[in-house]
Design a binder for these strands. Structure first.
Length: 483
RNA sequence: GACCCCAUCGUCUAGUGGUUAGGACUCGAGGUUUUCGACCUCGCAACCGGGGUUCGAAUCCCCGUGGGGUCGCCA
């Protein structure tokens, strides 16, 4: 019987939920869901200076938007502050750590000097490492606040089988006896992480590549405590188009930005999942359930991936077309929200639904969907200049629009069929009267332009019905002003 | 600089010793005579370089090169 998977996402609340962080969270979440395990959220707020409640909120909101809710209460790292401190002393008690009374100022100077001289700085703890514990404790009592605690790095090397990279081996000669408890009595990140991961019984740590160098240090703490070492997997970075780690200057990096841009959470998830993972066949557009089903650790890529906005938009368009219109309305904030932002309080739910229905297969974002749907509800203020030139080059186009307006006005039943019949009849009559063939397009294109101001869009007769007789007639008659 | 990680079309990727190196985004060309940024069809475009191993290498090994990450009493 395999033990239940327990994974976590552990961001520090110092900004917004970054897409890189979201991707890390997603992989953990997908794996937990896939294996029926537990996904936990831990807020690493030990940096009191940089941590803010707003950032905590932003992370929570972002996670919720992406539907990645933790299975257990959120753990704030600071609440285990005392346990972290206790762990440092326990390590000291066990002889795995020692008190360092050296002057940090002097050590800093040494380091700076050596880096300047292009030499490798390493803390030399030889004068403290082997002092008997009882003596160390005596001196600690006598000189409170004058020591830090460092982990004693043993001889040898540390090796682990990384879930994504395979075997990684670090020689201990590369490590120095790192501080676990500062002189001000506060524990350091690498120690707190181990303490909390052990406390939360995390058995798989999936995190960013940038933590590879922390891993041997953390494993050494587990080993010193005789704790079971979790599995580790290090996810590659997400890069900007210039192949440099994605950052603010590449544009939107907070998941909230994409929400504002009209991206669907399921599209964002789908996109993020495809950044560093692929199902193995040619499937690309996947629902969340499908993703959960197919996700596997073995197929995670080791190579950093470039964040390609184009593909996100394409995927978003795919998801929008597949989402039932009713749900799309909810995603836009509901009917009332839509009415308010577009100033169309008089519309019925059916009218709104119908309009979105017509546009949803040809837009890339929710914002686009609303602004195109609006064209149905409101008379156009501007007209596509190129289109105007092309469609109204023939002066007869104006008359065609007016004739169409008159014919539509007389219709009792205003449907796709009836309007199409009327239009085609007009084209035919004109053909006979003039002796040349007038294709229906000569009516259709100018008509579309007058109705929507655009040269693109859904089929004309669907549009005509959605706009409604009265508005159609009114918009068509504006062709008079084109002369 | 040291250590670690990475390397297939511009981008996301499939490929685990024998493939015309496949798909997707983008881009281009056609088609759809009701348009289009939608849809359909087609097309452009890649194994970083050099050595091995092997009958045979994108795939395995080594060396380069390039990119990235980490070197804090930050997280």
């Amino acid at each position: 019987m395999m033990q239940q998977v327990r994974v976590r996402f552990a961001p520090s609340p110092t900004g917004y939920l970054h897409v890189g962080g979201a991707r890390t969270a997603l992989f953990n979440w997908l794996w937990a869901r896939h294996t029926n395990g537990k996904f936990l959220l831990r807020i690493e707020d030990t940096d009191q200076l940089r941590s803010t409640p707003e950032a905590v909120e932003a992370i929570l909101v972002g996670m919720k938007w992406l539907q990645m809710e933790p299975d257990e209460p959120v753990l704030f790292q600071m609440t285990r502050h005392q346990e972290h401190i206790d762990l440092c002393y326990e390590l000291l008690e066990r002889g795995a750590a020692y008190a360092d009374f050296s002057d940090p100022e002097i050590e800093n100077q040494k380091r700076e000097a050596m880096t300047k001289a292009k030499l490798q700085y390493k803390f030399d703890g030889s004068m403290y490492r082997s002092i008997p514990i009882s003596e160390q404790k005596k001196r600690m009592e006598n000189e409170p606040g004058n020591f830090a605690i460092r982990l004693k790095i043993p001889e040898g090397k540390t090796q682990w089988n990384d879930i994504v990279h395979g075997s990684i081996e670090i020689n201990h000669a590369e490590l120095d006896d790192f501080v676990i408890l500062r002189r001000d009595g506060t524990p350091v990140y690498n120690l707190a992480v181990v303490s909390d991961d052990h406390f939360q019984q995390i058995n798989l740590v999936l995190r960013g590549d940038d933590h590879i160098s922390n891993t041997p240090k953390q494993i050494l703490i587990y080993q010193a405590m005789n704790w079971e070492v979790p599995k580790f997997g290090h996810l590659p970075m997400i890069l900007g188009t210039d192949k440099v780690k994605l950052s603010k200057r590449h544009g939107a990096t907070a998941v909230g930005d994409y929400q504002k841009l009209g991206i669907l959470p399921e599209a964002m998830i789908n996109f993020l999942a495809l950044l560093g993972w692929a199902p193995g066949d040619d499937t690309e557009v996947m629902s969340i359930d499908e993703l959960i089903n197919r996700f596997s650790l073995e197929r995670i890529n080791a190579k950093a991936a470039v964040f390609d906005l184009q593909k996100l938009y394409w995927l978003n368009g795919q998801h929008i077309s597949r989402t039932p219109t009713k749900q799309l309305i909810d995603k836009c904030g509901g009917i009332d929200q839509i009415k308010e932002t577009t100033g169309t309080s008089e519309l019925t739910v059916e009218q709104i639904t119908k309009s979105l229905e017509l546009w949803k297969t040809r837009v890339k974002t929710l914002d686009e969907l609303i602004s195109y749907a609006q064209i149905i509800w409101k008379d156009p203020l501007t007209y596509d200049q190129e289109g105007l030139k092309k469609q109204f080059q023939d002066p007869k186009a104006i008359n065609r629009c007016l004739a169409l307006a008159n014919a539509f006005e007389k219709l009792e039943t205003f449907t796709h069929e009836s309007t199409e019949a009327v239009l085609r009849k007009l084209a035919e009559e004109e053909s006979q009267a003039s002796g040349e063939t007038i294709p229906a397009g000569r009516y259709i294109h100018p008509c579309r332009l007058m109705l929507t101001g655009l040269t693109v869009g859904p089929g004309l007769f669907d549009l005509v019905v959605a706009i409604g007789k009265e508005a159609v007639v009114r918009r068509l008659r504006k062709a008079q002003q084109l002369t």
